[in-house]
Computed example of a mutant assay.
Amino acid sequence: MKRTLCNHCHFPEQTCVCTYLGKPLNNHCKILVLQHPSEVKVAKNTVRLLSLQLSNLEVITGETETDFAQVREQLQSVQCALLYPSESAMSLSAPSEEVNQPAIETLVVLDGTWKKVHKMLMLNPWLMSLPHVSFSDLPKNQYHIRKAEQAFSLSTLEATAHFLHLYEAISPEPLYRALAGMIEQQTRLMPADVKQRYLRDE
């Protein structure tokens, strides 16, 4: 039987996150999420939370160069960067108004498992030609209900929240609160032993 969805957050009514949402954050830098198709129906995917909490966000689903042809053309006319920890990435280190702060109008964020993200990069070599930004220090991973493939992995929401904190001095707390609420809703109906396995790292 198809589950009834909340009209606002579009999560199943049983796991509605509306209680945990605040007013949308007014981010000046556009967040452009390139989402792998396998993530679209994942209940624990955090991009849906971002879409509810950020005023300037666009999500494009795809994998191949053809899928992203239009967005690639659009990016040619703006100052953009890819959030990716490459060797050439410029590290953001602290909320600041530094002179050396890179000018970014659009931040491209890849949404998928590390394996899927790697495939997207292989199929879209133009992404590697964009300027890259990364972080000097990572916040603690709070996304305990989905296995991290790397010790330094952050969910798409956490990575975006940290970027906006460093780049625009936007508090990450509303986004972290939404994430914590989703985790609470997703785990509250689990058997105690299963829930403990998910939350063991808290």
Results as ranks from 00 to 15, higher is better:
Met1His: 12
Cys6Glu: 09
Cys6His: 10
Cys6Met: 11
His8Met: 07
Phe11Leu: 08
Phe11His: 12
Pro12Phe: 13
Pro12Gln: 12
Cys16Trp: 08
Cys18Ser: 11
Cys18Glu: 09
Cys18Met: 11
Thr19Asn: 14
Tyr20Cys: 02
Gly22Phe: 04
Pro24Lys: 07
Leu25Arg: 03
Asn27Trp: 06
Cys29Tyr: 02
Leu34Tyr: 00
Gln35Glu: 09
Gln35Ala: 02
Gln35His: 05
Pro37Cys: 10
Ser38Gly: 05
Glu39Thr: 03
Lys41Gly: 04
Val42Gly: 04
Ala43Met: 12
Lys44Leu: 13
Val47Ile: 11
Arg48Gly: 07
Leu50Phe: 01
Ser51Met: 15
Leu52Ser: 09
Leu57Asn: 12
Leu57Met: 15
Leu57Trp: 03
Glu58Pro: 07
Ile60Pro: 04
Thr61Ile: 14
Glu65Ala: 15
Thr66Gln: 05
Phe68Ala: 11
Arg72Gln: 15
Val78Phe: 07
Gln79Phe: 00
Cys80Lys: 11
Tyr84Lys: 05
Pro85Cys: 10
Glu87Gly: 04
Met90Lys: 13
Ile104Lys: 02
Val108Arg: 03
Gly112Pro: 11
Thr113Ala: 04
His118Gly: 06
Lys119Thr: 06
Asn124Met: 13
Asn124Thr: 09
Leu127Lys: 02
Phe135Asn: 06
Phe135His: 08
Phe135Val: 13
Asn141Arg: 14
Asn141Thr: 01
Tyr143Cys: 08
Ile145Val: 15
Ile145Arg: 01
Ala148Thr: 10
Glu149Pro: 00
Glu149Val: 02
Phe152Leu: 06
Phe152Ser: 14
Ser155Leu: 05
Ser155Gln: 07
Leu157Phe: 04
Ala161Glu: 01
Ala161Leu: 01
Leu164Gly: 03
Tyr167Glu: 08
Glu168Val: 01
Tyr176Leu: 12
Arg177Gly: 01
Ala178Leu: 10
Leu179Gln: 15
Met182Asn: 11
Met182Lys: 07
Thr187Ile: 10
Thr187Ser: 14
Arg188Ile: 11
Pro191Asp: 11
Arg197Met: 13
Arg197Glu: 09
Tyr198Ser: 02
Tyr198Glu: 01
Arg200Pro: 02
Glu202Ile: 05
